[in-house]
Design a protein around this nucleic acid. Structure first.
Lengths: 344, 344
DNA sequence: CTGAAAGCGCTTACAG
DNA sequence: CTGAAAGCGCTTACAG
């Protein structure tokens, strides 16, 4: 930092430009640009001068200009269902960590579980010229996603899709649900109620499949009267359980397709003076932060969404660079806590 | 849409440019730009031609170019402590809704409760040339924020600051805490434990102040042994309550400075075979979604973060336009649920 | 290794 | 109301 008369500029008049840095350092803008991007080797003394100039002027490259000229925005669109979802929230964190580290800017948007909103998000993100797209469980049909992926590199979770420009991180929901159900069966439960997630949601379908597969594998009869709809939210689990109780079909355990519904279910049981796990065992799915501290702590299936977020971010960066990404999604893991017990 | 031989372009070769639209419509780029931005009135027939061209070419303006030329990015930086926080999450939703509607792009970043990270976020966002900044409860000292606000319009929550270019949405944490404490006192509780939030966090200080003010107003003696630290997280509330129980100083109620700590507290009580609210009443603060479905449902203080998010977004938009924003932050409201009862 | 020059796709005085 | 022109701040062939 050379001290001098013009060491402190009059007043932040916007920020310094690359040209100002070049002038200050006595080189051409091209050279500064190359130095910044590591696009070419720069003579030692110029490098020093440029670095000094940058420091002196507090120069930070204007990303709009870089993007325009360079043809890449260094922005990644991230579509989630709900920015405040306790479930996807962890994934957002993982995505943010990796992307920030790699100098990409994530643009988060909520699709609100609605095809139309998801379409709007994608259009808007494409308008923003994002370099890539991460989609956390879309409702959009396969064709739309496949088509989109041809224009913008894309990674998606919660669905297994094959296609050009598309990486999918399919978590094994089926196996997770199978594990959870088996856990109940092993504790002697025979009448197990199942609270389903949103109807045409892939995760919901897979988890339902795992549930039925486990019953079958253990020779248990499937009773459709014990399957209720819960829409993946607390109130859904609550209402579903109320309905279940009212129905009168006996059950000794509930497997809710996610933790949020399990919370609602436990509250409904509590209101009906049914104790967990003494009267009814409950298993959830997702292992939310809240599940550890619920009363009683919830038995559930863990699949670190933080880790999945990190993987998704790494995968999209690779895809953008045109590298093949090998992704190993963590396996589902049963976490046994106090909400399940052997059948009384 | 005029059908024609070149109706379907060979292959999406990047997107259509403003110039292409101008050529197609037989007008100058300036006119298209003016039409797009409503900067000037455009002759009827040209308007029609431009609209047709836009539709035909699926034109969407390149935001980088617009920003660069226009000098505004239409991006708003939003700093939150943790993208997956159940508390701030609601605010993010409100911000997203308002900003999206007004055609601004929010850039969300996590400050992780750390001054250094917050600094990094602000620097990065400033580098991105955001038009404004929304800061949800920073740790950064007042001076830094005041100085920053002079360069970028800013609105912040969780602190009351006066300054040029700065709007602060100070929620009345003090009053909220007073209400919560008074609720317990009115139910006959005399030995009320308090679980504090993070030490130098403004919200924490205010809530602590409200707690003490309520005790004083009702002539209750303050016992420092009943105040424990909880850091605003579940595990903090859990550990604090364990400590409280171990201490042996009797208490019939706990006021936790936020819901997350209240959850932890209830679990600790549960493990000590203390029932809520029969043995100990518990009040939280924030009214998280989860609190409604907790067992038992939590008595707490509500201050819609979704609404505060919306207000913050509206305020920053006004500030950017140079308009004075009048913001009426919702008043704290006590929500009585099943976790509190009259002292046994 | 390095400059001069053209260009990325818009916006906006400036002059009709 | 509308064009031609300059410019926003970078990047990148092109030619040394």
């Amino acid at each position: 930092m050379t001290p001098g008369p013009d060491d402190n500029p009059p007043h932040a008049p916007g920020q310094a430009s690359l040209k100002m840095v070049a002038d200050e350092a006595g080189v051409s803008p091209s050279t500064v640009s190359r130095f910044l991007n590591g696009t070419a080797k720069v003579a030692e003394h110029k490098r020093v001068a440029i670095e000094a100039a940058i420091r002196k002027l507090h120069f930070v490259a204007n990303p709009m200009a870089s993007s325009l000229a360079g043809g890449k925005s260094r922005c990644i669109g991230v579509i989630t269902q709900d920015l405040s979802s306790p479930f996807y929230g962890q994934a957002l964190l993982g995505i943010e960590d990796v992307l920030t580290e790699a100098q990409f800017q994530p643009l988060f948007m909520s699709g609100h579980w609605r095809e139309e909103d998801e379409r709007r998000c994608i259009a808007s993100l494409e308008g923003r010229r994002v370099d890539g797209l991460i989609i956390l469980s879309a409702c959009l049909p396969d064709e739309v996603l496949l088509e989109q992926a041809q224009r913008t590199p894309m990674v998606m979770t919660g669905r297994s899709l094959q296609g050009e420009g598309l990486v999918s991180l399919g978590f094994d929901d089926f196996e997770g649900a199978r594990l959870a159900t088996e856990h109940l069966i092993e504790r002697g439960h025979r009448q197990i109620a199942f609270i389903r997630g949103t109807q045409n949601h892939p995760d919901a379908t897979e988890r339902y499949g795992g549930f039925r597969a486990a019953l079958k594998a253990h020779g248990l009869e499937f009773d459709p009267r014990l399957v209720v709809q819960g829409h993946f939210l607390e109130n859904g689990g609550y209402a579903a359980t109320k309905a279940l109780i009212k129905n009168g079909v006996p059950f000794s355990a509930i497997f809710a397709a996610n933790d949020q519904m399990a919370f609602g279910a436990i509250l409904a049981l509590h209101e009906a003076s049914l104790r967990v796990p003494e009267h009814v065992s409950v298993v959830g799915f997702d292992d939310l932060t809240a599940s550890t501290y619920f009363v009683p702590p919830l038995t559930t299936v863990r699949h670190s969404m933080y880790e999945i977020g990190r993987l998704a971010a790494k995968a999209i960066i690779h895809a953008i660079r045109g590298e093949a990404a090998e992704v190993a999604v963590p396996l589902p893991e049963l976490v046994v806590r106090a909400s399940t017990a052997a059948v009384g």
